[in-house]
């Protein structure tokens, strides 16, 4: 097993861990962190797998990861802002199951 696969597998593990946490925990901060961990997993995957696509280092996935990180940062900022607003409005930072009424 070479290094690239090790990184790629780590990426998958991170992604799965994040997905698990996203579903299991009810506190919103944990959910937001879980999504960030998932994103790190995907980015690791992108970079690790790109070394195998061509023999030389490929710059395109790096550009993608940079773009992805920018997107993830802004998404996290929006999520955190929403969470704070929600806590102010409803008194708890958790999602409540809404009744159909």
């Amino acid at each position: 097993m070479n290094n690239a696969y090790l990184y790629a597998l780590t990426g998958i593990v991170l992604f799965t861990l994040g997905l698990y946490a996203l579903i299991i925990y009810s506190h919103l901060l944990r959910k937001i962190l879980a999504i960030n961990i998932m994103a790190s997993g995907v980015f690791l995957q992108l970079v690790a797998l790109s070394t195998r696509a061509r023999p030389l280092l490929d710059a395109v996935p790096h550009a993608m990861v940079i773009t992805g990180i920018v997107v993830a940062v802004s998404a996290t900022a929006l999520a955190l802002a929403l969470m704070l607003r929600l806590r102010d409005a409803s008194g708890s930072a958790e999602l409540i199951e809404e009744s159909t009424e």
Binding site: F15, L19, L22, L28, K31, I35, M38, A39, G41, V42, Q45, L46, L49, S50, R52, A53, V60, P61, M64, G68, A75, L78, A79, L82, M83, R85, L86, A89, S90, L95, I96, E98
Partner: peptide
């Protein structure tokens, strides 16, 4: 706000899955 939060989480999860698929395609 609750609906927006849930929407955001779902939307981010969807994008993450999409991006992971994209990584596999780029690899191939």
């Amino acid at each position: 706000l609750g609906a927006a939060m849930r929407y955001l989480l779902v939307s981010l999860l969807g994008s993450m899955l999409y991006l992971l698929g994209l990584a596999l395609l780029y690899h191939s």
